[in-house]
Design a binder for these strands. Structure first.
Lengths: 218, 218
DNA sequence: AATATTTTGGACACAATTGTCCAATTCGTC
DNA sequence: GACGAATTGGACAATTGTGTCCAAAATATT
């Protein structure tokens, strides 16, 4: 938990110095907001974790509301970008459907659903959604609003190609995602961070059940 | 949202007057904690919503930490009690499996997963789990720790009776619950409260997919 | 090496909140 | 109607957090 900022950061040394500190602030803010919620997060705590003076935060990012806004916006962008990057590897014309869909599921779990950005966002949406209505309208638009239809489209493609037997691709997409997230959510609720080693098993379980329900039978 | 305490309350008039106010406080506290998080919830706000003076809260329930503890404990008890009450109606020897399992799923959705208590708890666990470790250990013990095995046991019973084809009842239980919660979660994340009229459809969808995957074929 | 920019830390006013005390008041009960 | 208990509202100190100002120090730029 203390190094989740490290997971979120990327080659800081190559950035201009100002941006470097800015990133440190945003990462620290993301952590603290996630841990304490909006009301519980103090600017001082963020400053300490970022290794920066409190004044620098006000200089670079203005007041608390704006800091929160910037953080959410950045994480949203990274998160959805990551999701669609994985979605581009969806097996549209697989030779071994179960094998390739399982591998895809594992990628999705690892890079989109497990990753700290996405989890952090989901948590914040649940807690602060009512406080920043405008902010979360755009999140909804770019989050579930775009993700589920995109998954549904891929599944419909598989159905059309004769791999699957679907009468409602949108429903299938929701159920596929739900199956993928089944074990993940339980771990999260139990405060347990899913070990890397179990992800393949989770992907296999979800995919197997999904295909048992929807794979075209010959 | 303003009347979610009403949903949680039950025939207050029949209670002794002191307990009556106590319940009003607990209901209001549940709402405010859920909306604002622990840090963001002010005793004053709770007092106002409960229609009670701030002092009365301190008289009856002590400080903020204890108030929170009592609220979580009460909701936990109500929530798990409700869950197991529904679970007792599980169709162990159904004539029409899909029909009866669908009806059971609808009951579970309505009375256990949709209900404000459960949702409130899940939210609080995500946000304040780290702040009250002991409290949430007991929650985990009586929440997921007991619910999933109980569901697994019922499914195993169905499998043994020849209705289902399961090699891992525990996994099947997690997936069944995940399928049930699929649409629910999306609604929640979108800040949309699931309309009563859609619950039957959600139960039917989840049950149908579950049985497509696990019903024994003849 | 000189200059411009950013960062720092400390001081400050202001607002919100917690938890306590207490006298006045309301309420249920006899 | 009178008694006792609970409730109320207001005042209070202590704490915490926000956001600003500013001069000194560190850092980048030329």
């Amino acid at each position: 938990m203390k190094n989740s900022s490290a997971e979120r950061s990327q080659d800081q040394d190559t950035w201009p110095p100002a941006q470097n500190k800015r990133q440190a602030i945003l990462n620290a803010a993301a952590d603290i907001f996630a841990e304490e919620g909006f009301a519980g997060a103090s600017i001082d705590a963020i400053a300490v974790r970022a290794g920066v003076s409190r004044q620098t935060i006000y200089n670079q990012l203005g007041d608390k509301d704006n800091l929160f806004k910037v953080v959410v916006t950045e994480i949203t962008e990274r998160s959805t970008a990551g999701f669609f990057r994985v979605l581009d590897t969806f097996p549209v014309a697989p030779q071994d459907l179960e094998k390739e869909l399982t591998e895809f599921s594992a990628r999705l779990l690892r890079k989109a659903m497990c990753d700290p950005n996405g989890r952090w966002l989901r948590k914040l949406v649940e807690t602060e959604g009512t406080r920043f209505p405008k902010l979360f309208e755009t999140w909804k638009e770019y989050g579930p609003g775009k993700k589920y239809p995109a998954v549904a489209a891929r599944l419909a493609q598989l159905a059309l190609a004769g791999y699957l037997d679907l009468d409602d691709p949108a429903l299938a997409a929701r159920q596929y995602m739900a199956l993928l997230g089944a074990d993940l959510r339980i771990d999260q609720q139990l405060g347990r961070q899913t070990p890397e080693s179990e992800i393949d098993q989770m992907a296999a379980n979800a995919t197997r059940t999904f295909l048992r329900a929807f794979a075209r039978r010959h």
